[in-house]
């Protein structure tokens, strides 16, 4: 019996190792092969090079033209700029709305509160494609020109949900006795809010904002439907590259994106862990 149990434990431990291998080996491989010099068979190693990165970043390289996509670094940079502009705007709006909603739902009792909470969760749970086409029909029938503006509005609908959840979690863990103490000591409501509530709430707000930012940068489906013809974001750019055939440049872009999101995510999780203590 004991033997069976220890065998069982080893199998379970081995399985868990495999689990992490499954999650991380592909990401690790793409990093390694982004330095592969082979321009045709991307997964056949033929020597180390950093030229793909140089190419993507706009430096002069010796790579022959048929191993490259036609569009230049300019279009990639334009896509990055669009993505950043959209992500910064949506983050600002979604953080404001999401935090306001969390405060309202946490502090006040009002008629239909349960239903309102459902309404705040729904945009996040709605399948991307449904929200995407609903917004497309809406904007087109309202005669609104599709572009950066419609992307910002469209993304905000579901990003508010994410901020709401993160800030609500923070509010639920907060100590209200400090507020009462502040009031007892003569601070008015605004002062209590600014000096007592806000500092405690800040990690939640920053965490929510970072989450909104990263999801906005990554959103493909909803953006794809409401971007119109002349705006491309970074995920859309890669998606269209992939649809036309795989070339090593995507590797380099992908690895840089991975690095970027790992940095932002680590920041976010750091703020979340501060939330718990």
């Amino acid at each position: 019996m004991k033997l069976i149990r220890s065998i069982g434990r080893s199998i379970l431990a081995f399985y868990t190792v495999l689990f992490f291998v499954f999650v991380y080996l592909p990401l690790f491989l793409i990093m390694v092969y982004s330095f592969n010099a082979n321009p045709v068979n991307m997964m056949t190693w033929s020597g180390f090079t950093t030229e793909w990165y140089a190419q993507v970043l706009g430096f002069k390289t010796t790579i022959s033209e048929n191993a490259l996509y036609l569009e230049s670094t300019d279009q990639l940079l334009q896509a990055v700029r669009n993505s950043l502009l959209i992500a910064l705007s949506t983050t600002a709006v979604a953080t404001l709305f999401g935090t306001a909603a969390a405060l309202a739902v946490h502090r006040f009792h009002f008629f239909g509160k349960r239903l309102y909470r459902v309404l705040l969760f729904l945009p996040m749970l709605m399948p991307d494609i449904v929200l995407g086409i609903a917004l497309l029909i809406f904007f087109v029938s309202a005669g609104i020109h599709l572009g950066i503006g419609t992307i910002i509005i469209g993304q905000c609908t579901f990003l508010i949900s994410y901020v709401f959840i993160v800030v609500s979690a923070r509010l639920a863990g907060m100590d209200r006795t400090l507020e009462h103490a502040s009031a007892d000591l003569g601070a008015n409501e605004w002062m209590t809010f600014r000096r007592v509530v806000m500092p405690q709430l800040m990690p939640g707000i920053i965490g929510g904002a970072l989450l909104a930012f990263i999801i906005s940068m990554d959103d493909l489906v909803i953006t794809y439907f409401i971007a119109g013809v002349d705006v491309t974001t970074l995920p859309m750019f890669i998606f269209s590259m992939m649809r036309r055939g795989i070339k090593p440049e995507i590797n380099a872009i992908a690895v840089m994106m991975l690095m970027f999101s790992v940095i932002i995510a680590s920041l976010g999780l750091y703020f979340r862990s501060r939330q718990k203590s």
Binding site: P26, M43, I246, M257, V262, A265
Partner: peptide
């Protein structure tokens, strides 16, 4: 480590599988 991939680009994570699974894939 399990939550981290959720924050990385979805299209990049799928792209990796194209490289692994295709005819001339790894």
């Amino acid at each position: 480590l399990i939550t981290l991939p959720f924050f990385t680009s979805l299209i990049v994570r799928l792209f990796v599988w194209v490289l692994l699974l295709r005819q001339t894939g790894l």
